[in-house]
């Protein structure tokens, strides 16, 4: 199979990779780039566990061909925190105990972050509409909804400092 060179930015770092035409972005990030935070849940667009940002848009990386991100900016869950400073939504997930097994969490945070970028104070209905494609088997979604709606507070520094 003919190999293709793809140049893109991954979490702010320029990358140049060689891939087959049928290579998926999910496999590139997980296997070639060793960024395993993005999860495989179904591989066919059913669960949202593989959500990343491509040029700011939430994208199911299991359905995205790697060659198509040539020239794009890709951000994965690993690119959200600024150094040791967590993204407000990551803090909000912790404050609201929106993490159980954590397998859906990276995808949930990436889609939630995208909603907040467009709409910093979403209503519950807006959160439900935006996140309806994400599955979580553990939490029942209430804590996740609260985490997304409450992230605004975390952004202003008005979040609970953890006891530890």
């Amino acid at each position: 199979m003919k190999k293709h060179t793809v140049r893109f930015s991954l979490n702010g770092t320029p990358r140049e990779i060689t891939v087959n035409a049928n290579e998926l972005l999910l496999n590139v990030t997980r296997e070639q780039e060793k960024l395993t935070g993005t999860k495989y849940g179904c591989g066919i667009g059913e669960c949202g566990a593989c959500t990343v940002h491509v040029d700011g848009r939430p994208t199911l990386s299991c359905l995205q061909l790697a060659v198509a991100v040539d020239g794009a900016e890709v951000v994965t869950i690993e690119g959200l925190a600024k150094g040791r400073e967590l993204d407000p939504l990551q803090k909000s997930f912790l404050d609201n105990n929106a993490v159980q097994c954590g397998y859906c969490t990276p995808g949930m945070i990436m889609i939630g972050r995208n909603l907040l970028d467009e709409n910093p104070n979403p209503t519950e209905e807006e959160v439900r509409t935006h996140m309806r494609g994400q599955l979580c088997r553990c939490t029942g979604y209430a804590s996740i909804t609260k985490a997304v709606m409450g992230a605004g507070k975390c952004a202003t520094g008005d979040f609970k400092i953890p006891a530890e």
């Binding site: 960024l35 395993t36 935070g37 993005t38 869950i77 912790l94 404050d95 954590g102 953890p162 530890e164």
Partner: peptide
């Protein structure tokens, strides 16, 4: 109800499954 100890690794994608 402080943050769960595996929480930071789970929200940053560094937890290993």
């Amino acid at each position: 109800s402080s943050w769960r100890k595996d929480g930071i690794s789970k929200v940053t994608g560094s937890e290993q499954y």
